[in-house]
Design a protein around this nucleic acid. Structure first.
Lengths: 335, 335
DNA sequence: AGGCCGTCTGTAAACGTTTACGGCAGCCGG
DNA sequence: CCGGCTGCCGTAAACGTTTACAGACGGCCT
């Protein structure tokens, strides 16, 4: 594992200056036989340019960071899956941060961006943009794209989903099937998705002329076991004929409980998940689920960032991804 | 987005030399009031050290790369999920490469490691270590840990799973349940897992005194739809009383087909998946699955790499992770 | 009082690139 | 035959750090 060759080594061997070596390697116009000598020397030495030195000079790392709460969550996997190839094609590496949804961790990522280890950042803050975030965002020395909603006037690109429309899609679908007592299993209210979905649920009920019944709402966390517990609590109190879950994992938990209670899905209770992940089609009955366009949000975020990296400053842009409803057996009988 | 402050800026403002600034910021012994002046200046300027310059000097990037075929595959998600926190705790960032299982891409990752953008690499080559890999591995200027099997004597750390034992666990379980006609839906034979599992299947049958029947074996790809197609082909020819699938996705595909054919699971056909992912418990009936310790393999790989980064060279080590069998409803009746 | 030691600081080199600038040789035209 | 232009090339500076080395200064001991 000896120290690798540098352009100095090559220059010595080829009998030229390091400037010539650099020029040849970068394809700048050079006399034929100089090119030959340099390339030969580089080849014999197995030269590989040092990315760090290059970055220092060019002020470009060719890296982009992506920060999200938990790579175990299929939503984020979908995003990464879109982001990665786009970056790769454009010649960027992907640096992955799992913050666990911790605000301090998120802020830390933002601050660290000042170390210039990456040319840009895509961040999906679970707890939303706090004051601390905002200051750092404004002062950030590299472009940032936020996935999720941001405060008015924050000076960054933003990709969001219309979760209000998504919830409305789900409730209208259930309403159209004749369901009138529609429960809701939500995630924590102090998260961005949790808060947004709570508001959207109340809104959509209102739009359908249905009353808001607190007994039909339970809050847990975005995991299966917590979803099951929440479903359990809900069913102890009330007997809805449909349940909307704030993500597919919660819906799986609810499915477990419904099965244990010998309630048939969808005959007794129709079930709708959110995020439309692979889990929705793995379940039985397959889950109707509201797709919030995770993959597309990832894609658009990457595109926005690359555009900004290539073309410099521009007005902050906001992209909204439309939700979709994938109707499956958990609301419409056998698949 | 003005150019950020450097130690030179700080030095000017504090009226000291850049060496003093560096010393203060690195906590080297310095006179009290110099420390104060420097820290004050740094604070006022909002100084953040430049990671690239630091890397150039120290020859450490504090980054580790992880290369695998597809981040959409739950197996790799499990690995990343373990690798990330370990690296983070040790002060390393994670660079993610999805190679799509393409050999050239994998080789490229290995070659790029020479650019020194990362201090080490964890790689899980889908197609195995070819000659090209091997040369680069030997010449690599940074430590590499390979997840999956490697040729004898390759000079790198290695974390592997005993898939032979895993397959044996599954077949013995099925045998114990009285199944004697055990089909096998495999992935491509030119992948490492595919080849290993094919051999293990033949082996385990032999160990149980069962004949190897080519009609009971089908090859597809490691995806759900391909698994379904393979299952379909298999069932057209033969009527096994159990099917082992080379991963959970294939098993889901098989489940779809069995359901369509009105074959009951597990009464008519017992079904076993591999990898023991989240999908296994999302399915219905829940899937018995062979756990190949993806999470643990990721963890151990990260530990090996960090150890090598901290403590320099040592003999190449091989860690083997034992498989486990999670027995669920798809082989043992109602959950 | 002089020398010495210890503490702190500044100068400068180094990490591996890219690139501005000036020099040199060769060629052409006048 | 000389001046100037063109085409290549080498020298050196720069990116932002860390760090070896030497210098400055004060205090203490003899």
């Amino acid at each position: 594992m000896a120290q690798g060759p540098t352009i100095t080594t090559i220059a010595a061997r080829a009998g030229v200056s390091i400037a010539s070596v650099s020029r040849v390697l970068n394809g700048l116009p050079t006399r034929e036989d100089t090119v030959r000598k340099v390339l030969a020397a580089a080849d014999e030495l197995g030269y590989v340019p040092n990315a760090v030195a290059r970055s220092l000079k060019s002020n470009r790392t060719h890296q982009v960071a992506f920060a999200m709460a938990d790579i175990g969550n299929p939503t984020y996997v979908a995003m990464v899956r879109e982001i990665q190839p786009v970056l790769k094609t454009a010649g960027y590496r992907l640096v992955l941060h799992s913050t666990g949804g911790d605000v301090d961790d998120e802020v830390d990522v933002l601050r660290r961006l000042g170390e210039r280890y990456a040319d840009g950042l895509i961040i999906s803050p679970l707890r939303g943009i706090t004051e601390k975030h905002l200051d750092l965002l404004i002062a950030a020395r590299a472009p940032v794209v936020v996935i999720g909603s941001i405060p008015e006037g924050a000076p960054v690109d933003n990709v969001r989903t219309d979760s209000r429309a998504g919830v409305r899609l789900a409730l209208e679908h259930l309403y159209g099937l004749g369901r009138r007592s529609i429960g809701f299993l939500n995630g924590p209210l102090d998260t961005v998705p949790g808060a947004a979905r709570a508001a959207a649920y109340a809104d959509a009920l209102d739009g359908l002329g249905l009353p808001y019944d607190p007994d039909l709402v339970e809050v847990g966390d975005f995991y299966r076991s917590e979803g099951a517990e929440a479903a359990h609590r809900l069913l102890e109190r009330s007997r809805p004929d449909a349940i909307l879950c704030a993500n597919d994992l919660i819906a799986l938990g609810a499915l477990d409980v419904l099965r244990a209670e010998r309630l048939r899905v969808p005959e007794d209770v129709a079930l709708v998940g959110m995020d439309d992940t692979e889990l929705a089609t793995a379940a039985w009955p397959t889950l109707t689920s509201v797709g919030l366009g995770s993959a597309e949000r990832g894609l658009r975020a990457a595109e926005l960032l690359l555009d900004r990296l290539d073309n410099g400053v521009a007005e902050p842009r906001i992209v909204t991804v439309e939700p979709t409803l994938a109707v499956r057996a958990s609301t419409e009988g056998a698949a």
